[in-house]
Write a protein that binds this DNA or RNA. Sequence first.
RNA 1: GGCCUCAUCGUCUAACGGUUAGGACAUCAGGUUUUCAUCCUGACAAUCGGAGUUCGAUUCUCCGUGAGGUCACCA
Length: 476
Amino acid sequence: MKQPARTRFAPSPTGYLHVGGIRTALFAWLVARQSGGTFILRLEDTDKAREVEGSGQHIMDSLRWLGLTWDEGLDVGGPYGPYKQSERLEIYKEWAQKLIEKGRAYADPYSPEEVEAFRKTAREAKQPFLYRNHRPEHPPVWDGSRPLRFKSDPKAYMWDDTIMGKLSAGAEAIDDFILIKSDGYPTYNFAHIIDDLLMKCTHVIRAQEFLASVPIYLNLYEALEIERPILATVPPVMGPDGRKKLSKRDGAKDVLDYAKEGYLPAAMLNFMASLGWNDGTEQEVFTVPELIEKFSLERVQRSGARFDEKRLLWMNGAHIRMLPVDELSEKVQNYWPPEATNSTEAYKKQVLALVQERLKYFGELPDLTRFFFMDLPVNISLIDGNKQLGRLGKTELKTLLTAAREELAGSDFTLDDLTNRLNGLLERTQTKPAVLFSLIRIATTQAPASPGLADTLSVLGKETSLRRIDATLQAF
RNA sequence: GGCCUCAUCGUCUAACGGUUAGGACAUCAGGUUUUCAUCCUGACAAUCGGAGUUCGAUUCUCCGUGAGGUCACCA
């Protein structure tokens, strides 16, 4: 058994959580759960300007919908709170003070414009911008009105990343970054190091965009004389075109949009996990408990993966099919067409059992089932457009359908009886299923597609079935 | 431009240095008493290029090329 891990997900409240973002949360959650450890949710709200009202709540709603529950953090609290960085400013100041005392932090004497000028010069010279090239010899005393910078100790590093393997970077990757901004808030670069330490996080699992900053974190760990956690860098999730990282701008959807459309959290998690991870077997569909059992950071891919919605759709259908009807029934409650309002739960459940195998997401439920709840207008074009039926004349169709009506009128509409009578009718009328069954199916459903004929008739019941056949007969 | 990372079918991926390079999604074609779907069968389809190491390279090394990330008082 693994040591109980303490992992965290630390989003910033700048908007909704998109599908790329949740994979990082999922991996961290899986690591915590499979080790009997702790999953922490921390809010990195140190940028007042970018903060979006209500997005913290929205993120929590998203995680809860997915079932990525946290043991410590926002809402639930815990021994190392507060879990909102904006409420931890004093803590960061204390640690900043330690660095100042060690001579490893100093006040930035330049104005933003001056720094920008340095940056511009560097860019024009096609050089990377390094603030430390302009490090002041006698910085002013830090009074909080200026940014506080880390006095780095540039050197090369080699380190281990659980996913990426052996990594290295030269001294040029290390710079004097800002610890505390002039507004008193810490930067991510500083705050997360302190929080991960104080919250006793064993793993830092984060997206690849932070990889370039790892050397400065290593430098900071050393300056602080603290042990560093296990580092794991998750490869990026790319947009469908594979051109760039999945982002909201390029249409990455809010996780809760998938909830609304009727996706299953388990399918969503399975799909996200499969983007970059597999267990080495040919298994594709995993339940959440299976993911918890089998996941490992070591088997996570190093390259980026595209978000392929078709695969997600297939996977959702696969998960829907695995569900017991009773469970599925509870989940689709809000997706029935309005016409179903007056139907009994038992009836709806019967309908659901018939469409379960063709349901890809709950949002399709109305289109798939509407005719079970209301008589659709007779649509002769369904017959005319049918390959087999289109060839027959009105008289023939009418004769055939009349015969069917008579036969069905004698049925008790149990599945067995219907099946027998339909088969008998095939023989007696000397027609092919493609003709007879299509005709009855269209007459009784008026829908382009429906479940098996006997099943459908049985659920519709005698009265409704005959009424609809009569309506079709009249239209000929 | 510097630095970092990555590179197998269209897509997600598998393959102790030895396989006819496997599976899944998608697509196409058949089959299962109609349709749609499920299920089954089949087809299509990949190791970025070049050197090197080796009896043997998808796998190891180097050089290209391509892609992504990063170089903020954003995270």
